[in-house]
């Protein structure tokens, strides 16, 4: 717990017009942790991911990863640094196979340029072969190997979520951002997902997890951070957070609004 933070957000703020989606957020994620990020709808969780990955520039504040700032980088450069993500509203490349999706995730770790692709030297073929092996290994790891050659949009909902995880892992990230991976899964699938996330951590990938399903978050997170109206209202081990009155109020309050 004393290790230097892997990801650190300081006073991170993001406005959309008059709306403050993130309000001076401080967030730390340390290596080899699973951190849960929760909060009512519209709390700013996804926005936090979007700012960290460079989709939206922050209005103010700082994001550093492994001690270096990632503010101002394009999303592709952020991925290159070692942060990969999945999307709340699944965004697989629908017309491509699961395998191809994972290979696109591997894109940043491959070197072949246009000339190499045309001449297809032995090195290029080797690289392709290794990439396919790696992607297949991830499809196996996430449990969708038998759908490797099926079009992404023909997969079941749960399998699509897993394909997104495989695609993100293909870039060998050190930090994985999961945006509601359990949404739309049945209880059995959620159980499998729990195992998967722990296995991801055991591979040495740190996980920051947005999730509404409390059993998933509370079951696997080492630490939970609660957002409401863009602000952090609580932070700590799952049990403590669960009993925090401010958290209860945020959830119940928003349920009444």
């Amino acid at each position: 717990m004393s290790a230097a933070p892997l990801l650190e957000c300081r006073a991170l703020t993001r406005r959309f017009g008059g709306l403050v989606a993130l309000d001076a957020l401080h967030l730390e994620v340390r290596p080899a942790e699973v951190v849960g990020l929760i909060g009512p709808n519209g709390a700013g969780k996804t926005t936090a991911f979007n700012v960290v990955t460079g989709i939206h520039p922050p209005t103010a504040g700082e994001v550093s990863f492994e001690g270096r700032s990632v503010v101002g980088l394009r999303p592709s450069a952020v991925l290159q640094r070692g942060i990969a993500r999945t999307f709340q509203n699944i965004r697989l490349f629908r017309g491509m196979t699961a395998l191809e999706n994972a290979l696109v995730g591997r894109h940043a770790r491959l070197r072949t340029g246009p000339l190499g692709a045309i001449l297809r030297s032995r090195r290029v073929v080797e690289e392709e072969r290794a990439a396919v092996d790696f992607a297949m290994e991830l499809l196996r790891f996430t449990g969708i190997e038998r759908h490797a050659l099926a079009r992404a949009d023909s997969l079941s909902y749960g399998d699509q979520r897993r394909a997104e995880i495989a695609r993100a892992l293909a870039s060998e990230p050190r930090l994985l951002l999961l945006d509601e991976p359990a949404a739309g899964m049945n209880p059995r699938e959620k159980g499998v997902l729990n195992e998967l996330i722990l296995a991801i951590r055991d591979r040495g990938v740190t996980v920051l997890l947005i999730e509404h399903d409390m059993r998933v978050v509370m079951g696997i997170s080492d630490r939970v951070v609660v957002l409401d109206h863009g602000q952090k209202i609580a932070e700590g081990p799952p049990d403590a957070v669960r009993r925090d009155p401010r958290v209860l109020e945020a959830y119940l309050g928003s349920a009444h609004a």
Binding site: F16, G17, T46, F49, N50, I55, H56, F87, Q88, R91
Partner: peptide
């Protein structure tokens, strides 16, 4: 125009 359309992820 206001801001350019931002992509909703």
């Amino acid at each position: 125009g206001g801001s350019t359309e931002v992509d909703r992820a």
